[in-house]
Design a protein around this nucleic acid. Structure first.
Length: 571
RNA sequence: GCGCCAGUAGCUCAGCUGGAUAGAGCAUCAGAUUUCUAAUCUGAGGGUCGGAGGUUCGAAUCCUCCCUGGCGUACCA
């Protein structure tokens, strides 16, 4: 399509006092097919030409020559509308998709560069709940997007496996946990994540009446950081229990990480980091804590060490950033973390800047809105959560029931039910812009009609079905001149914008751009499918439509795969 | 109090760097299946784009103020 734009620019630059770049920037796509394929708004040059836009447009329409590629130029009010050769559009686009297949949409703008993506990063010793879904799913999609535009990606699950809360858990475990029979290790206690959760909730309940528990907890965390054997053994046990559960859920979601280096991983590097900050003269002691004063940047201080000398998450994040730069030498580091931590990241980036790290400008906080209940914010502390695994199981169950009702003989029913059930959940997380807070609603997230993952998957299955029935031979050796329907033109134009959609989606770290695109493509196809037959007697038209169908199938498949959804061929 | 983010149809949301008539889905109602999967499609109703100013040929989009909601605001993450 760039070819057409270049042609138009070439035509215009002779008549208009603007540079090629300026003209190119002004060219837009008209809202309706009737208005042509490209448009140039003449407002922009009205002043310079001392004429009104309508007249300029009318004069240009008369003056400019048409050609094989630009088949018509019309003036419509202040707009100059260009009509390009439909045959060339179809040929260019469908040929490209046919040739590139699984790689259609990929580009190499990130070739040779590395992106580190920090996502999911839950606190251990708790179940994964529905509010953990967003970071994981968004991060995974961003990982795939960057990979698609050529980056080497490193996915990091920065586990929250360190901090005062583990002091709290140890206290709770010692007070109310299972009795140790003296022999063997604590691994014999049969603790699971639910029991850990109960201990956590109980701690916060009891600490309200008995604040000394908090002191006790801080003391245990200090011991943990100091390497106390009992503390470490208990903590490691908690971590093992948690990870086995997490991995099961990630597996279901199809989400992977290249590294599980969590907060604890940096424990023995913390001193060096703090020393560097001290030596740079950035830190000071205030109210017994070691801080970096950020007053002149209108921010509260970044606390490096509490008054009892224990570290905080900010300390560990600074340390982790340094480590990742050393280890991966990233060109971009993306933190997929909720928007309630905005200030934290602002402080973190400021401290990195003050430390003299120019690469801090490569770090971005990709934030997202809260998941809320009607009753208010979810809180693990109060035990008010919907478990993620429970949601996934429920969704797959519903998917299976629907299949039983529609396509009971489906061969790999369980597998497809799983793909669709999980797909529904993932897609619903990715279909609105990140910044929006979302209200958790069972009915909404388990809806399989309308703008949903199953809708996209269903459309894909339909396309596959048509291709099966046509005998399976798809060729790009077709007569591109047989496409006459508006719906076909809309489809091919939509297909053409796929690579650009991916780039925009990646650059904005906004998977919803791609989700919306897929919904739009599917709805355009379903409309076409309803009104026009594909498997018809007219062989020329049939072969051309089959190529179009196959191209749509390919783009949906590529898009779903980036978002982290499976594309079943039957459902 | 201060800071950040959001406010578009009854509900959930699109609307690219300002551009042609503000669009979908859900829900409601009315339709479409001897024909490629009805998890689909067609149609109807439904809007002071939170409010008021301003910039501009032109504003849902940019600026200012106000209202409402969410989040954050030194030893949690």
């Amino acid at each position: 399509m760039d070819i057409f734009i270049k042609n138009i620019v070439d035509l215009l630059k002779a008549e208009i006092p603007l540079s090629e770049e300026e003209i190119k920037g002004l060219i837009e796509i008209p809202p309706d097919l009737k208005m042509g394929d490209f448009a140039f708004p003449c407002f922009a040059v009205a002043k310079q030409l001392k004429n009104n836009p309508g007249k300029i447009s009318a004069e240009l329409a008369q003056k400019l020559p048409i050609s094989d590629s630009i088949t018509d130029i019309k003036s419509q009010g202040p707009y100059l509308n260009f009509y390009v050769s439909k045959e060339m559009i179809f040929k260019t686009v469908l040929d490209e998709i046919f040739t590139e297949s699984d790689f259609y949409g990929s580009s190499d703008s990130g070739a040779g560069k590395t992106a580190v993506i920090d996502y999911s990063s839950p606190n251990i010793a708790k179940h994964l709940a529905v509010h953990h879904l967003r970071s994981a799913v968004i991060g995974n999609a961003i990982y795939n997007l960057y990979k698609t535009i050529g980056y080497k990606c490193v996915g990091i699950n920065h586990l929250g496996d360190w901090g005062t809360q583990f002091g709290q858990l140890i206290v709770a475990f010692k007070r109310w946990g299972p009795d140790l029979k003296g022999q063997d290790s604590i691994k014999e206690t049969g603790l699971d994540i639910s029991k850990l959760n109960e201990l956590y909730v109980r701690f916060h309940k009891e600490a309200k009446d008995n604040p000394s528990l908090e002191d006790e907890a801080r003391d245990w965390f200090r011991k943990l950081e100091g390497g106390n054997e009992e503390a470490i053994e208990t903590w490691q046990y908690f971590k093992d229990i948690s990870l086995s559960e997490f991995e099961r859920v990630y597996e279901k979601l199809g989400i992977k990480f290249d590294s599980y280096a969590g907060e604890s991983f940096y424990n023995n590097m913390l001193n060096d980091t703090v020393k560097r900050i001290k030596d740079a003269g950035l830190s000071e002691v205030s109210e017994e804590a070691l801080i970096v004063n950020l007053e002149e940047y209108d921010m509260p201080p970044c606390i490096l060490r509490k008054k009892d000398d224990a570290s905080l998450y900010a300390t560990r994040d600074i340390c982790a950033a340094e480590y990742r730069k050393r280890e991966y030498n990233f060109d971009k580091m993306i933190y997929v973390v909720g928007s309630e931590q905005r200030l934290h990241f602002k402080q973190l980036f400021k401290v990195l800047e003050l430390m003299g790290y120019e690469w801090m400008s490569d770090c971005i906080h990709v934030d997202f809105g809260l998941v809320k209940f009607k009753q208010g914010k979810m809180s693990t502390r109060e035990g008010k959560v919907v478990l993620l695994e429970e949601l996934l199981v429920e969704s797959c169950k519903i998917a299976e029931e629907i299949i039983d009702g529609k396509n009971a003989d489906l061969e790999n029913k369980a597998e497809v039910a799983n793909d669709v059930g999980i797909g529904a959940i993932i897609f619903s997380e990715l279909s609105t812009k990140r910044v929006k807070d979302v209200m958790f609603d069972w009915n909404e997230i388990l809806n399989f009609d309308g703008e949903t993952g199953p809708y996209v998957q269903y459309t894909h299955a339909r396309l596959c079905s048509v291709l099966r029935k046509c005998g399976g031979t798809v060729t790009n050796e077709v007569d591109y001149d047989v496409f006459k329907e508006d719906d076909e033109l809309l489809l091919v134009k939509k297909l053409e914008s796929f690579p650009l959609t991916i780039i925009r989606s990646a650059q904005n770290c906004e998977p919803s751009i791609l989700s919306k695109y897929l919904l739009d493509l599917c709805s355009t196809f379903n409309r076409f499918y309803q009104h026009h037959r594909i498997l018809i007697d007219d062989t020329e038209l049939k072969m051309a439509r089959i190529l179009l169908v196959d191209s749509i199938r390919q783009v949906i498949k590529n898009g779903l795969s980036i978002l982290g959804l499976k594309a079943p061929e039957r459902m």
